[in-house]
Nucleic acid binder design. Structure first.
Lengths: 129, 129
DNA sequence: TTGACGCATGCCCATATGGGCATATGATGG
DNA sequence: CCATCATATGCCCATATGGGCATGCGTCAA
């Protein structure tokens, strides 16, 4: 069902919606890493990752649906290959925060110190955390 | 419940487990983008993103739990601030695929062309896609 | 102390997994 | 056309959302 046709309660973003969701799954990330070495049949991947064949097939299907992987029939087998182009937008989005994590040694650390200090001087004790 | 203490059927990786899962949610990505401009109270964020306050609070909680956001009590309010350090590993992981999406004009395109060609010459018609 | 304001939570729903299994579907070699 | 290998799917479960709402908890000002 196309998401744009959906009208009811949306429980959660579908894992098949985009690369962000696809790589949120550890096992799928593992698969992508393995595929950097070249095309591989499902059974191979499943064995190397210690998962069942159906599991591997399902994860590969998700990866295929978001376009991170391509399939090619090779005789009796189906070879899965990496198509990393969909990861580029992800890399760029995350990269947009680069200057913020680089800042960790000045503004942020200072900010954290302020927090610690404030906590000791004035035991807020509010809410949680 | 700590995942390492979990013994039953794991339905899905918890969204609160790591940065990868946290940024899989579009709205949470929006929140992070807004926070690049500085600390903001929940209500502000909710208004700007067109979501209810409880919704914003919940997303912020997830972001807090994976460490992408920090809170600071400011009188009656609670100011949320960005802590992008957790995005660095994500950026690096995705960056590990850079050479593969850069390759798109030689090996990959060639590969895709081969696929197209093969499809026309030999109508495989197998499985789906 | 009492409101009022700002947030965090608790609950209920409907949904989409991800795993385990059994089985359908494809393709290949006889 | 049949047996067999390689995969993809269909189903059932238990789980973790994410949204909508109502409400509890904290903090501050009068």
């Amino acid at each position: 069902m196309p998401i744009w046709a959906y009208d009811g309660v949306m429980a959660r973003a579908a894992t098949t919606s985009d690369a962000f969701n696809a790589i949120a799954e550890p096992q799928r990330r593992e698969i992508l890493l393995l595929l950097r070495s070249g095309e591989r049949p499902v059974t191979d991947l499943a064995r190397d990752l210690g998962m069942t064949q159906p599991q591997a097939s399902k994860h590969l299907r998700v990866l295929r649906e978001v376009g991170l992987v391509r399939v090619r029939g090779a005789g009796k087998q189906r070879l899965y290959g990496l198509d990393a182009r969909g990861l580029r937008p992800v890399h760029e989005w995350v990269g947009g925060f680069e200057r913020f994590w680089s800042e960790s040694f000045d503004r942020l650390d200072e900010y954290v110190r302020d927090l610690e200090q404030a906590r000791q001087e004035e035991p807020t004790d509010g809410y949680d955390q």
